[in-house]
């Protein structure tokens, strides 16, 4: 019993080591901060060194990078896009506004903390975070994936009621056409491995 688990996890470890070298990113830049991404991707900092590439649709993406503030209206789209992404998926909050509302703390139209609505893997604090910070954050993420610790996405399946309640509190009911609790059962996410 003990042995099979170790063999499996050894195999798993190898694949995870390979897997962590490829991350595709969907950037959601309706707020500010998009200006920090071109230098991150191009010759100065070159994100592709780590296998991180921008991708276009949520189906292909692993990372959802949300830059700047999120208004209530755009949060709907973020939730839809997040649910359309394929697990494992990692949300990265970029800039102070995603953490606590930042300079929009008083605004009636923006949300304060992103992790109330979708599980966030990590935040990049600052206004703006520089490309160095982004690279730093992503290397950290890569390491965590390699160690198998980047599991925030499972939380959305496990604690869906919590997120759903917060979402509905902001914008009422929406139909994203994805039944998260049922998906969790179907894909056996969050079940304890025997």
């Amino acid at each position: 019993m003990e042995k099979t688990i170790t063999q499996r996890s050894a195999w798993d470890k190898v694949l995870t080591k390979l897997q962590k070298r490829s991350l595709w990113m969907l950037h959601y830049c309706t707020g500010c901060g998009a200006v920090e991404l071109p230098p991150t991707m191009t010759a100065r900092f070159d994100m592709e060194r780590f296998g991180i590439m921008p991708m276009v649709t949520p189906r292909q993406a692993d990372i959802l990078l949300i830059t700047g503030y999120l208004s209530v209206k755009t949060l709907k789209r973020v939730v839809l896009i997040y649910e359309q992404m394929q697990s494992p998926k990692y949300v990265v909050g970029f800039g102070s506004c995603t953490i606590n509302g930042g300079m929009y703390w008083n605004s009636y139209a923006t949300i304060k903390s992103l992790d109330q609505y979708i599980p966030v893997e990590f935040y990049l604090a600052g206004c703006m975070p520089r490309p160095e910070a982004i690279i730093e954050g992503f290397t950290e993420l890569i390491d965590r994936i390699g160690e198998g610790k980047a599991n925030s996405w499972e939380d959305y399946y496990k604690n869906y009621e919590f997120y759903r309640k917060n979402q509905e509190h902001v914008f009422g009911t929406i139909d994203t056409r994805t039944d998260i609790p049922d998906d969790a059962k179907y894909f056996k996410i969050g079940e304890v491995e025997k």
């Binding site: 694949l15 390979l18 070298r21 490829s22 191009t42 010759a43 592709e48 060194r49 296998g51 692993d62």
Partner: peptide, 17 residues
């Protein structure tokens, strides 16, 4: 483009992922 670029077997990582 004067970048470093990804690994030589980057497509392999992508497939595995």
């Amino acid at each position: 483009q004067r970048r470093v670029g990804p690994s030589w077997i980057q497509p392999f990582f992508d497939v595995i992922k």
